[in-house]
Amino acid sequence: MIPASFDYVRASTADEAVQRLSEAGEDAKLLAGGHSLLPLMRLRMATPSLLVDIGGMRDLSYVKDGGDSLAIGALTRHGELARNELARREAPLLAHVAGQVGDPQVRHRGTIGGSIAHGDPASDLPAACLALGASFVTASPRGEQTRSADEFFTGFLETALAPDEMLVEIRVPKSAGATWSFQKFNRRAQDWAIVGVALARNGSTRIGLVNMGATPLRATAAEDALAGGASPAEASSRAGDGLAPPSDLSASAEYRRHLARVLVRRALEEAVAG
C-alpha cells in the first residue's frame, strides 16, 4: 500500500508552515510524526496534494513550567512526554496516557500535537486533554489563538483548526488532576481502545471518553451526577447516557455503553482510593 502522489516541502518555523498552508489551500496537510496521517494516506483515505513537513522543528518539542499550567510543545513525542519528569510530576495523567499510546515504535515518532489535531475519537490523548481542561495554542497567518479542549473537537476527524492553522502548544492546568485514572480496554496490547476513560479529579471531576462517539468527548451525564452528590456507582451508571458510540468490528454500540459504565466506575474507584 503506497500513498497517492503528493508534493512535499519542509518548514522550519510555524510561520513558514502556516504560510505554506495558506498558499496551498484546503488540500495541504501538515506532517509531524506521521503516525495518524500516513496510515490514512496508505489506505488512500487521505490524499493531500501537499505535505508540509514540520517534523524537523525540534524547538517545538518541550515541556515547560508555565506557572499555573504546564506548556507542552506540539511536536513533543509520546515517548518523550511519558518520560519527562516535569510532566510526570505536574500532569501525571497526561504523561501516563502518553505512555499508553500505541507501542514503543509509535511513541518514538508520534507527537501530541499530531494526535490532537487529527481529532480521532479513538485516540487516548484528546480524552486526557478533555479531562484535564487543557487548552490549545495555534498559529495562523491571522496570529496566535487559544481554544479550550472543550471547543476544539467538532466532528469525526474534524477540529476547529482552519486549513491554514497549526497547533503549536498544549497547556494543561497543573491542579486539574490531583487524583486521576486512565482505563483503556482493548483486545491486543497495541490496539486503539475499544473504550477508554481518562478521569481527573480535584474538587470536581472531569471524565474524558475514548471511542464513545464521533469526537473525543466528556461523560457529562456522569459528571453532572457526581456534582449533584451521586455515589460512584450511581454516577457511573450514567456514563453512556446521551452518547451515540459507534458499532464496528470490535464492539457494538450497546457493548461500548456497557464498557463506559464499567470503566468509569473503575476509574472513580481508583481515583477516590488514590
Binding site: G34, H35, P39, G79, R109
Partner: peptide, 9 residues
C-alpha cells in the same frame, strides 16, 4: 530509536 519503517517516508 526503534521505528516502523512502513510508517515513515
Amino acid at each position: 530509536e526503534s521505528v516502523k519503517s512502513c510508517t515513515m517516508l
